[in-house]
Every structure is written in structure tokens, then in C-alpha cells.
Amino acid sequence: MNFPSKLIEDAVTEISRLPGIGKKTALRLALHLLKQKESVSEDLANAILSLRKQIKYCHTCFNVSDSETCSICRSGRRDRTIICVVEDIPDVLAIENTSQFNGLYHVLGGIISPIQGIGPDDLKIEALISRIAGSEGEEKVSEIILALPATMEGDTTSFFITRRLKEFGVKVSTIARGIPIGGELEYTDEITLGRSILTRVNYSVD
């Protein structure tokens, strides 16, 4: 791709480093910014710089935060006896958008993957164990929900965590895996269909 300006080329190169953005899309974005007021580019640049320099990670659940403790962990309205374990931050956002979960979270920062060289020590598993061991009284953790990917790596991570939690006698559950609403059985893979049958629930008309 030939560029009329080295400045545009540099901008396209940096923008195209973002996931899901190719050179052509990066060029369109760069040219779009050129058409806007200079203040628009300055606001974007300042927002990115502030993100990198000022963002913090909650010292309890490792979610992104503006302070040492995130708003979810600080909230007095959350059920502190239930912790939902997720792979990464986008999973927290996805679950929160459902408005169906009122407990706390724990972000592992990945899943166990020997192929990628990621082991249990590379994740926030020990921090999770410490949270459970340190809970007491009315806020004692009673259930851990494993909301991890339905992959071999996700299942390996779930298995490892479950074994580590065995000594605490805490209930361990996983999110349901089944047929999506509107899905046709003939197009559903065998593993998902099999899990749906095994984890079937009672059907009631009441």
C-alpha cells in the first residue's frame, strides 16, 4: 500500500496493530480523523494516554478499576458469598450486561494452556484460594461459579480449580452449556447437544 505521506503511513501502521483492524480500515480511520476538528484527535489521544497511565486493577478481583478496589467489590448490594470466576475482563462485562448476577467476580487473567506455556502459576488462582480461605462470618464464600470457556483449556482450568477448592468444602458450580435460543438441533455440535441432555432441567407449565 502506497501512502502520500509518511505521517499517514505511521498512523496507519499503529492503528492496524489493534485487533480486527487491517490496513484499509486503519487508513479509513486515519483519514476520518484528518477530516475532524483537531480537538477530536486530541481528545482521543488524551483518553488513550489516561487509560494506559491511570487505569488500575482491583486488588481483590483483578477487574479494571479507577481505584484500588473496583465498584463491584465496594458495593454493599452485592452478594459477597458467591464468586463468579472468569477468564478475563470482557467476561465480567458480558455477565454484568445480563443483569442476572449479583455476586462478586474473580478474573483469572487467562486459562491453563500448556501449548501456550500458561500454567496455574501464571493465573490468579492462588489469589482466589486466599479470598476463600480469608472469608469468614456472614461473608464466608459459599459458592464458586466457574464461568470459563467450553474448551479443553477451560475444562482443564475448571478441573484444577475444583481440586484446589476441595479442602474448603465450598460449592462449585459451572454455567449451563446448552442449545442457544432459536438454535436447531440438527446444526448443533454433538458435544453441546450431549451436555444439554446431561444437564437437562425440569420442565414446568406453572
Rank of each mutant, 00 (worst) to 15 (best):
L7D: 12
I8V: 15
E9F: 14
V12K: 01
E14M: 11
I15C: 04
R17P: 08
L18H: 01
P19A: 06
G22P: 07
T25H: 06
R28P: 11
L29E: 08
A30L: 06
L34H: 10
Q36E: 15
E38N: 07
L49M: 05
S50A: 15
S50R: 14
R52H: 15
R52W: 12
K53Y: 12
I55G: 11
Y57T: 13
C58L: 06
F62N: 04
F62M: 05
N63I: 09
V64Y: 14
V64W: 05
D66M: 14
E68Q: 14
C73G: 00
R74D: 14
S75H: 02
D88H: 11
A94N: 08
E96I: 07
S99M: 15
N102A: 10
Y105Q: 07
V107L: 06
L108F: 04
G109Y: 03
I111R: 07
P114D: 08
I115Q: 09
I118V: 15
P120R: 01
P120H: 02
D121I: 00
L123R: 05
K124G: 10
R131D: 04
I132G: 11
T151V: 09
E153D: 07
G154Q: 01
D155N: 00
T156M: 10
T156A: 15
F159W: 11
F160W: 06
I161P: 00
R163G: 12
L165A: 04
F168G: 09
G169T: 05
V172E: 00
S173R: 08
S173I: 10
T174G: 13
I175T: 13
I175S: 02
A176M: 03
I179F: 01
P180M: 10
G182F: 03
L185V: 15
D189T: 06
L193V: 07
I197V: 13
T199N: 14
V201I: 11
V201H: 00
N202P: 06
Y203M: 01
S204A: 01
